[in-house]
């Protein structure tokens, strides 16, 4: 009896010691100053682009980058509050507002791809024959075909709202639903519900194998999806890591990185997911 309880006591102490050991580490080694907080859209993470670029940036610059993937709307808000050092976003109009308000010190063109309208194979609203994105949206509304919106003020959501305005329809009613989630999750929901949705090409291509959705409308000029990198202004928020943010913006627009962006995904999806644009002038 004595022996047995001794054994139990020993194992209890060992377990306690192990737990203490494991539990202590999160409290040490938390250096600040060498880290850059990057607020970005879900598409750059869900497509896998940042999984390639972030480690490379860390190796080259010595900074540790913390990628916080939220929608563009939320990323811009994080920038406004100074909760992020640098942004990689895709909502040009909102970005211009952001710069005008003095929240950003530097904004550079990085890359583009395009938005596409995807939907079920049967295409009940006949989007495929539409001549423009606005007409496609009009047809979806007229047929009251189920459409899934991101509904999260992301860049994609802002683009979608712009297209509804262009189509002159107020998206309301049982056919118009909001997922409130990232692009990947929204595509999956649309696929399961045989619904239409607007997506960036990169996320669609990256997830295509799990989706029962077809590209129904593409290559209309308003569907261009442009990504900028923005350095959050140190004037409004002295606490931000300006050097690290600049290093990241430089990295994203550097020649080598741009070449990598242009090649990313080509081997896996048969076509690149993003097109490098650094140094070009806009339209």
């Amino acid at each position: 009896m004595q022996k047995r309880s001794g054994h139990v006591r020993n194992s209890a102490w060992m377990l306690t010691a192990f737990i203490m050991f494991v539990a202590c580490r999160p409290w040490v080694c938390q250096g600040a100053g060498r880290e850059v907080i990057l607020a970005t859209t879900t598409s750059t993470q869900d497509s896998g682009l940042l999984d390639v670029l972030a480690p490379l940036f860390e190796k080259k610059s010595g900074y540790q980058v913390k990628v916080i993937a939220v929608g563009t709307g939320q990323a811009l808000k994080m920038g406004e509050r100074g909760d992020a050092d640098v942004l990689l976003v895709h909502a040009p109009e909102a970005e211009v507002e952001f710069m005008k308000a003095g929240h950003g010190s530097d904004r550079r063109l990085v890359m583009h791809n395009d938005f596409i309208i995807v939907g079920p194979k049967g295409d009940p609203a006949k989007v495929k024959g539409a001549r423009s994105a606005a007409e496609g949206f009009h047809r979806i509304a007229a047929a009251k075909a189920t459409f899934f919106s991101r509904g999260d003020e992301s860049g994609t959501h802002k683009m979608e709202l712009k297209l509804w305005r262009a189509a002159k329809v107020g998206p309301e009613g049982g056919w118009y639903q909001q997922s409130g989630q990232g692009m990947g999750a929204t595509l999956k929901i649309a696929s399961e519900k045989s619904a239409y949705t607007l997506t960036d090409r990169a996320t669609y291509l990256a997830l295509r194998k799990n989706l029962d959705l077809r590209i129904l409308l593409e290559r209309d000029a308003p569907l261009l999806n442009i990504y900028h990198v923005i350095v959050v202004s140190p004037k409004k928020h002295p606490g931000t890591n300006l050097r690290g943010a600049k290093a990241f913006a430089d990295f994203m627009t550097a020649k080598g990185t741009q070449r990598l962006i242009g090649k990313f995904g080509a081997d896996k999806f048969g076509q690149p997911l993003f097109f490098p644009d650094a140094g070009k002038r806009e339209r």
Binding site: T42, Q45, D46, G48, Q181, G182, G184, A185, L187, K188, A206, L207, K209, N210, L211
Partner: peptide, 9 residues
């Protein structure tokens, strides 16, 4: 959650 949203079920 991330792998689910990436479609890597």
């Amino acid at each position: 959650v991330l792998e689910t949203s990436k479609g890597n079920f």
